[in-house]
Design a protein around this nucleic acid. Structure first.
Lengths: 222, 222
DNA sequence: AAGAAAAATGAGACTAATCCCATAAATGAG
DNA sequence: CTCATTTATGGGATTAGTCTCATTTTTCTT
């Protein structure tokens, strides 16, 4: 069914014990199935079929679908927010950090739309992961405010507004064109209080310095 | 289960033929059930139980759950967007219209959080209703741009961003405090390119002129 | 109030999913 | 290679839902 299938978890465990490999196969299949039908509509057998495992195998690993979703979402959180945060360790300027993080997340979604879509659904359903999920974002907002760049109060609604803008981009344009990414980054900055022109400049600058289309490195240099 | 239950459809049909009344009972119950468990998880029997009807009765009215959702969503569209648009017929100023519409929608959600939540889910699932659902919003955006108040391009992503901000407010604060409403209105205006201070003034002005807490226009008495 | 039409009922046939578990297969340590 | 341990299997009991339809109940008309 899926034309592109990138096996986030399986790749991390290719040489390891069988137990780990099977678990990863279940996690990767869950991402595919959740992304295509949504969590509610996904059936255990959809996932085991996709992983080419017997139905019963699922129950050697998880009690039920909820437990699986928790595992999937936590894994995606590490992969998405953790990785992006590592890439940004040299950036000190608040607006640059927020722009970079937003754009990078959407760039990843261009290659792997399933990851972001399942992640966002998971964060919404598995409420105990929400705080952790938005922790990095809050930090960057605080930095920008501290520096006097953002004109806003950091609260839970603001954080959710930003996540909502990201989700809107994903829903409307899963292929994630540059135009969509730029419009979304500008929207986030406007929300934080930057005037339109300044927001546009900030986004253009981040794209030029870090995200020009020919270099897609995992290590952000200067 | 629901402590407050306001019977949008039933009230419109109280004196009429039995067929209309039963259909309204199904629609109102569907709103309650969809709002509490989500559309996917809702079972036909949940809805008929809530309406105190037999399971089979459902099938005298609808072929399946999807057909019911279409009916519910279309009804909510009339009730929500239609009514608000009527209230605004005298307003010519683009930013005022957008602010008023946003604030009014959220004020309705304060009394009836279920309506907005089901409406937003429905518009997302029943794609053929989307165009109609956002038609009024698009018009107001065009007006504001024509007048030189908004610095943005009207496209589908923008419209979805605005809907997403509304959805974020509903998810985070279903009780819909004034603070949430104000923050959401300001967010919408910022998104459209107003600088923070101007956005805040615009929102304050609309609240003062049209939405002061002691007068709730139309027919709103308990 | 009777009779016809409209509406509601709920038992039951189907379909589909979860989850268990006795058995089979695969793995890997000595 | 052998055998104990780990892992996978898939049949089937169980639960849960959809949808039908012959029957009952309610409503409407005269």
């Amino acid at each position: 069914m899926s034309s592109t299938n990138h096996h986030l978890f399986r790749e991390q465990t290719s040489g390891r014990k069988k137990r780990e490999r099977t678990r990863s196969a279940l996690l990767d299949s869950a991402i595919s199935v959740f992304a295509s039908k949504g969590f509610e509509a996904a059936r255990i057998t959809d996932i085991t079929n996709h992983a080419e495992l017997a139905n019963g195998t699922f129950y050697n690993y998880y009690k039920d679908k909820d437990e699986l979703l928790r595992d999937v979402t936590a894994g995606l959180a590490v992969e998405l927010t953790g990785r992006i945060n590592d890439e940004m360790e040299n950036l000190a300027h608040g607006p640059t950090r927020v722009t970079f993080a937003t754009a990078r997340l959407l760039q990843i979604a261009r290659r792997e739309p399933e990851w972001l879509s399942v992640y966002l659904e998971g964060v919404f359903i598995v409420t105990e992961l929400q705080a952790a999920a938005v922790q990095y974002l809050r930090q960057d907002l605080e930095i920008g405010i501290e520096q006097g760049h953002f004109d806003t109060e950091v609260n839970l609604l603001l954080v959710n507004q930003i996540l909502s803008l990201i989700r809107a981009a994903l829903l409307l344009d899963p292929a994630m064109s540059d135009h969509t990414i730029i419009q979304t980054c500008e929207a986030v900055l406007r929300l934080l209080g930057l005037p339109p022109r300044k927001a546009a400049k900030q986004v253009a600058s981040v794209f030029e310095r870090f995200l020009s289309s020919d270099e897609h490195t995992t290590d952000a240099q200067g």
